[in-house]
Design a protein around this nucleic acid. Sequence first.
DNA 1: CCTTATCAGTACCGTACGGTACGGTTCTGT
DNA 2: ACAGAACCGTACCGTACGGTACTGATAAGG
Lengths: 215, 215
Amino acid sequence: MTEAEQDRLTPRQRAVLERALELLVAGGERALTTAGVARAASCSKESLYKWFGDRDGLMAAMIAYQASKVRGFADDGGPMDRERFRAHLVGFAQDLLEVLGGDVSLALNRLAIGQASREKSRLGQLLVAQGRRRVDQSARALLEAGRKRGFIHYTDADEAYRTLYGLIVRDLHVRMLLGEEGARRPEKIAALAERAVKQFFALYGARQKERAETA
Amino acid sequence: MTEAEQDRLTPRQRAVLERALELLVAGGERALTTAGVARAASCSKESLYKWFGDRDGLMAAMIAYQASKVRGFADDGGPMDRERFRAHLVGFAQDLLEVLGGDVSLALNRLAIGQASREKSRLGQLLVAQGRRRVDQSARALLEAGRKRGFIHYTDADEAYRTLYGLIVRDLHVRMLLGEEGARRPEKIAALAERAVKQFFALYGARQKERAETA
DNA sequence: CCTTATCAGTACCGTACGGTACGGTTCTGT
DNA sequence: ACAGAACCGTACCGTACGGTACTGATAAGG
């Protein structure tokens, strides 16, 4: 489902997708039945099939709809000193941890992972990737802004971003997906973000560039 | 299912679990039907229910059985200079990436993640955690050995290990779980491991301890 | 040879789900 | 006011699955 089709959703359809997402969050994929969605959203199954084609189409629409709500982190382009850049990175880390740990995000990732084995309907995985790309690209833009101003140094932007991602998320995402209780600690997010950014600067800060890059 | 019960499995039952794992790898959870397992393993459904109780018990047995095959990385305790320690870390990183990217591991993780939402049968998640704990503990022992010999420095072993994990795995595990093609690149494992260990030494090497620890 | 236990194979049952069809109602445009 | 579309609620159908019961074959033990 393209972005153009996405905008073509009527408010009614958006409301249906919201209810469907609630069902998915509450009960996992097994709770996402067409009859259940129709009942919860007070619409007919016939309308569901008319709007979304089939169950796979409904799931794809749910993912695309949710992805359309995740906005990137805009680079205001204004003056930015080193401390402001660092604060931006910490903010990115916090937002990332909050997004990944959100109920809807976890439920949709579980759904997409569950569908990953089926040859057909790989759309789910692609659409989740589309949702992630927004976050990724804004983060890459942020890194590039810091590099141009000389706060950090790298030769491979992708490598640098993935390292930042690893330092922030570690194994938290998978553990949250597995339902591990200790993994979701919203009160720890600030400290996790600070530590990750500190480590990232230790690796990619302009004064230590030789240590992180040379292979 | 405890380790003692695990050993009580007959060769016949192990063979059935092997076939069940093959089915799961080939077709995901939807392919793991009781009739399908019985047919593939040439046993009766009645025997399946006698041995494993129900479908959840079968899945738990599969996870426990597979976890029993994942061995940790033994610390030979012998003399170890800095280079040997580094080589051990690189070897751990390679093994970790290979295990996480294995077909059976991915299939079982997808299965456990799919079951995570259901209140009942959280066993799957716990047993996967048990399987991971073997890897975790041996890695922690390796780090501790390096710390005692002064090659690295940290105050919180858990923090250090999680950082190492993040540097090695980054977002590869989730992307592999999502079925992303570009994520599974066995030929890249060696380079990934080298880079991760290099970055880990930059953060936790004994000479740069103040940069990684002080918050 | 007889008994007993185990197990493969099959048939069966209840349930739940995806998808379709239809009657009745509300909204919309003319 | 009227025609047509959109849509809700429900009933329905085919299928697939989890779980159980039954039958027949095999093999060990006396």
